[in-house]
């Protein structure tokens, strides 16, 4: 009885699948899938090697500070970094006095309430504050950016397939529109206000090229601020911003693995010892 019902149900599923299969195959035959502009012109991220890569990776604090400077002087005009507090900058090598100064001199102030009148007001940033967003809200951000919303960068290095190399490729990947794209995909050309970038999934990104000329940011440590260098540094900084505990994770992981390898050897020995007289 159970078997008859099961077979009947199974037969129905198989018939339904056959109908679906017929639909899929005839669909492919009558309307073969055509490659889209993104299929043909989208590029995989360029190679980028950072000090934090790999199981032994550690942050290059000099580079993180340079990247923070790029963020501060370029990115932070439009992008927020909500999850990072000024106090967290200790992790990239600033001391308490420097952090206090950075917070105090930050261009955007913290919203607060006037203690006397209760009116909305602003005050200087403190080390305990999170980095304030450049716009009061999403509507203001869109209004200032051609109706595009600059995403928060705190988790950018983890929130996109490709991570840091993706960020680096976007920043350095602006190109003239290929002739073949213009010819074959006139519908996929950037609309007004969008910019061609083959590393962006849809090829058309709202952000214009931001790192344009060498020396746009003046590095304190004497590193030559080429466009490539600035893009690499800010990508490294965003890896830190997304995963500030990366170094302690690697160190703890290394210790754990050593401990467990020793544990496995001892457990193996105990196992062999218990079973030594028994065929199994």
């Amino acid at each position: 009885m159970v078997r008859t019902i099961a077979n009947a149900v199974g037969a129905l599923f198989v018939l339904s699948l056959l109908a679906a299969l017929w639909g899929s195959i005839s669909g492919v035959i009558s309307d073969p899938p055509k490659p889209t502009a993104a299929d043909l012109f989208h590029k995989e991220p360029k190679a980028l090697h950072l000090a934090s890569d790999g199981p032994f990776g550690k942050f290059d604090q000099q580079q993180l500070q340079r990247g923070f400077q790029v963020f501060k002087e370029v990115c932070s005009n439009c992008h927020s970094l909500k999850l990072v507090a000024f106090r967290d900058l200790k992790g990239i090598g600033y001391d308490d006095a420097q952090i206090k100064a950075i917070a105090d001199q930050w261009a955007v102030e913290q919203p607060t309430t006037n203690p006397d009148t209760g009116e909305p007001a602003t005050r200087k940033n403190l080390p305990s504050d999170h980095i304030p967003p450049p716009f009061a809200n999403d509507i203001a951000a869109r209004a200032a950016n051609n109706n595009a919303l600059p995403p928060d960068l705190s988790l950018m290095a983890k929130a996109r397939e490709g991570g840091a190399p993706y960020i680096y490729s976007i920043l350095t990947g602006y190109e003239p529109i290929p002739v073949a794209l213009k010819k074959n995909f006139p519908d996929s050309l950037p609309l007004p206000g969008l910019h061609y970038n083959p590393y962006f999934p849809s090829l058309n990104i709202a952000m214009a090229q931001q790192l344009t000329t060498e020396g746009q940011v003046q590095y304190q440590d004497g590193t030559r601020p080429t466009v490539d260098q600035m893009a690499e540094d800010v990508s490294a900084f965003l890896v830190w911003a997304a995963e500030p505990k990366l170094e302690s994770r690697h160190v703890a992981g290394f210790a754990t693995v050593i401990f467990l390898v020793i544990f496995c050897f001892l457990a193996w020995g105990a196992y062999q010892n218990v079973w030594r007289d028994l065929e199994h």
Binding site: P55, H250, L260, Y271
Partner: peptide, 21 residues
């Protein structure tokens, strides 16, 4: 228990490699 102890060690090792790295 002895055999499972060894198995547990190997399991935790694989677990730790994914978790930390």
């Amino acid at each position: 228990t002895a055999k499972d102890g060894f198995g547990l060690g190997v399991f935790l090792l694989v677990f730790a490699v994914i978790l930390f790295f």
